[in-house]
Nucleic acid binder design. Structure first.
Lengths: 228, 228
DNA sequence: TGTCGATATGACCATTTGGTCAACTCTGCT
DNA sequence: AGCAGAGTTGACCAAATGGTCATATCGACA
């Protein structure tokens, strides 16, 4: 029987998750080089030696965090076909990405920091899995455009537009809070932003929005006017 | 007469600009903490002591770079009024921001890294100048919406959308190159991306595009279809 | 030629870096 | 009680960190 303490997790599991959480914050803030094991240890409330005992090395810790974030991202992706409804698919993509950003802001920033330094640890992933995913989507978008279901925009840039617009609310949170004079973005902010992005992007590439009244009542006041 | 060498600049001016250029690269890549004076010195091809002789300290160098970038940003901003044409203003904004991103990718990344770590050196700027600039724009956008010249979208989020979509092509260049399997984004890429963003964003918030045939022939094939 | 300020740089310093290691405690089992 | 393995941690290391300083060289002008 593996020992269990009051928290319900084994010692190893509990400490490792504390370390991962703390490390995600520190790496997201200062990048790989700028983060020190000492700072991570302090953020986790453990001595440096203990951190290294669990994770082995700074590099292994960093890679583990990146892999966790990529796993979250992959878990979000569902497959699509050219017979699906463009509006539903695009809106679903925007909403999923926004949810990911909201639920894992530190992970999103960690990813941003990694890409900022040239993605030395993610080359393989970017050139492999992710590229294939983007291409498969792009093909479907092109078919939709041929069918007249959306404007003939470059699908890859459309994906990047969605990526950037959603990613922004994690990576540039400090800028947004500074400009809007808030201390945090609340649930209502995220809902409104998501609705805004769905409205502008779908309309902007000529996609008819999905007309599901049952789900979460998407557009509210913004929707309805079609340039009269 | 201040001495002039073969390059036409004084020794000080020449070395300082070399150091600034090198430092921008290194800071953009690794952030403030992750960048070392040694690395900057090597990138500039000078001994570390010489770098510190010119710039005083790592912190002063970093602040100088941020200020230079903010100056570039400020230089880009032109004032607008509610009588201006929404399409022209929005498109001008997108094109200006895209040009800034293209001409100073390292500076853009430097800014991103600074905001990622919570913008400790830019709090004042974000809460002051930049906030007022955003607010003044927002007021004009709202008037346009009241006049029926655009959809009643939240103007602040619209500004952030433009910011993120353009900023993305500097900050996430590694990701874009990885996915599109290129080694660099060329002039034609930037032109096409800019046109794409203008198309989607203007159309997405219900703004009639400016009809200037004379300027640089903006939309080309993409334009013309209005959801038929 | 000598002088003076700007430029250049190696030697050096205290501190911090990632990482190792031996010693220690704790916990469960026989 | 005694043993074993997991967990814990301070001491320690070589390397790198930001920064100082004394010294040396340069170019222009007297």
């Amino acid at each position: 029987m593996t020992s269990m303490n009051s928290s319900g997790l084994g010692t190893r599991a509990r400490n490792e998750s504390m370390i991962l959480e703390a490390a995600e914050r520190v790496f997201a803030c200062h990048g790989y080089r700028g983060a020190s094991v000492q700072a991570i240890a302090e953020a986790a409330g453990l001595p440096k030696s203990n951190v290294l005992y669990y994770v082995g090395s700074k590099r292994k810790l960093y890679v583990a965090l990146l892999e966790r974030m990529m796993a979250r991202w992959n878990a979000m992706l569902d497959d699509i076909g050219e017979d699906d409804d463009p509006g539903e698919v695009l809106e679903g993509f925007i909403r999923s990405k926004m949810r990911l950003t909201r639920q894992h802001p530190q992970g999103s920033r960690l990813f941003a920091a990694e890409v900022l330094q040239g993605a030395p640890f993610l080359q393989e992933y970017l050139h492999g899995e992710l590229r294939e995913w983007v291409r498969s989507r792009a093909r479907v978008f092109e078919r939709w455009a041929e069918k007249g279901l959306m404007d003939p925009v470059d699908p890859v840039w459309l994906i990047f537009l969605i990526w950037s617009a959603t990613q922004h609310y994690a990576d540039f949170e400090a800028q947004i809070l500074g400009i809007t004079d808030q201390t945090a973005l609340g649930e209502s902010d995220y809902r409104a932003i998501t609705d805004f992005l769905c409205h502008v992007i779908l309309k902007g590439c000529g996609v008819r929005p999905p007309s599901d009244v049952d789900s979460e009542r998407h557009y509210q006041d913004i929707q309805g006017e079609e340039t009269t």
